[in-house]
Write a protein that binds this DNA or RNA. Structure first.
Length: 322
DNA sequence: ATGGTTTTTACTGCGTC
DNA sequence: GACGCGGTAAAAACCAT
């Protein structure tokens, strides 16, 4: 729709790494160089339309005045507060009797706004999401999506009997994937207050109960971050991307963890270009085992035609390649 | 619960620096 | 000898049924 108006790079510069011109990946929020994938700025500003429509009526009716409502605050930033000054609207001091009345009103106002019951847990959850978003360096758009998902989960009574932290983490994990800025479950566990299993479980529950259509993660989405954390070159990353594309859509992809595939592709890419990158390094940044890396690595090379199945044994001794 | 698939754990020998 | 790589078997985790 109106999106391609924002698609163009906002600034022109050259990548410090590969020296080619930077294509600013607006859609993904992460401004990564298209050539080498190095991440230049993760906290990109959302240049998109100010008016986000979360509901059908929101989208239809854009005539309201004032700032847009935000799902990131428990009261959507809409509520007002009784002022602290003991003055009337003309600036006159209040009488003792009036002042007393205002004190009482303020107390009730406070009670109402702080929320009772579910409002309070909502507030807590949104704070939790905010904390994790910051820790993971995710853009505002992901935070908002996560908040919306959490609200829906709350409305559908998915929270009862489950920890706020688990649902919050699951919602965020889902949001990040929806926005094509996936974080691995491992990364989630480093910032969440619940363990990996709970996040995964709550995520799956949320996704199925709310009917969120979330595609399996594209392994290439992990490449820029992994590559940059491994300090490996542009060519390696491109090589890795090529390898992943050869298996994309084939049966080999299905059922495999995208994280493992990305890690293996990166390692394979380095191997093909004779760049020093150890399995240990990759396994450390991707949080998968060396075994997973080399199993996929072998398969990737076979699929890409760099290695035939019979050469499996000899590959280790460096008798092929080049 | 169960069974099929993938990933991890733990152990191994081999080559190189 | 330490390190990295590759292979393997068995345990654990995952996922749909």
């Amino acid at each position: 729709m109106s999106t391609h108006a924002h698609q163009q790079p906002e600034f022109e510069s050259t990548c410090p790494n590969c020296n080619s011109s930077i294509s600013y990946d607006q859609k993904h929020g992460e401004s990564a160089c298209a050539e080498c994938g190095i991440i230049l700025r993760e906290d990109a500003i959302d240049h998109g339309p100010e008016w986000n429509g979360y509901t059908a009526t929101d989208r239809k009716d854009r005539s309201r005045v004032g700032r847009p409502t935000t799902p990131t605050l428990h009261d959507r930033g809409l509520s007002t507060q009784i002022g602290w000054q003991n003055q009337d609207s003309y600036g006159q001091a209040l009488s003792a009797r009036q002042r007393h009345k205002m004190e009482r009103l303020r107390t009730w106002d406070e009670r109402y706004r702080a929320g009772i019951g579910r409002e309070r847990t909502l507030k807590q959850a949104l704070a939790e999401i905010h904390r994790m978003v910051s820790a993971l360096g995710l853009p505002q758009a992901v935070r908002e999506t996560a908040c919306v998902i959490y609200r829906r989960a709350l409305d559908d009574d998915l929270v009862v009997g489950r920890s706020i932290e688990g649902i919050a983490a699951g919602a965020l994990y889902a949001a990040a994937r929806q926005q094509e800025l996936p974080r691995t479950l491992e990364e989630m566990t480093t910032v969440a207050r619940v363990d990996r299993r709970r996040i995964s479980r709550d995520y799956r529950r949320i996704a199925s109960e709310l009917g969120l259509a979330i595609e399996p993660t594209d392994p290439t989405a992990y490449l820029p971050r992994f590559a940059s954390e491994c300090d490996c070159s542009i060519t390696v990353q491109r090589q890795a991307r090529d390898l992943l594309e050869t298996v994309a859509g084939t049966t080999y992809m299905s059922g495999k963890s995208p994280v493992g595939l990305a890690a293996a592709a990166l390692y394979a890419g380095a191997h093909l270009t004779d760049e020093p990158l150890t399995q240990r390094e990759v396994s450390a940044v991707a949080d998968v085992t060396r075994v997973t890396i080399r199993n996929h690595y072998r398969e990737l090379l076979i699929h890409a035609g760099h290695m035939s199945p019979e050469q499996t044994q000899t590959a280790a001794r460096g008798e092929i390649g080049d």
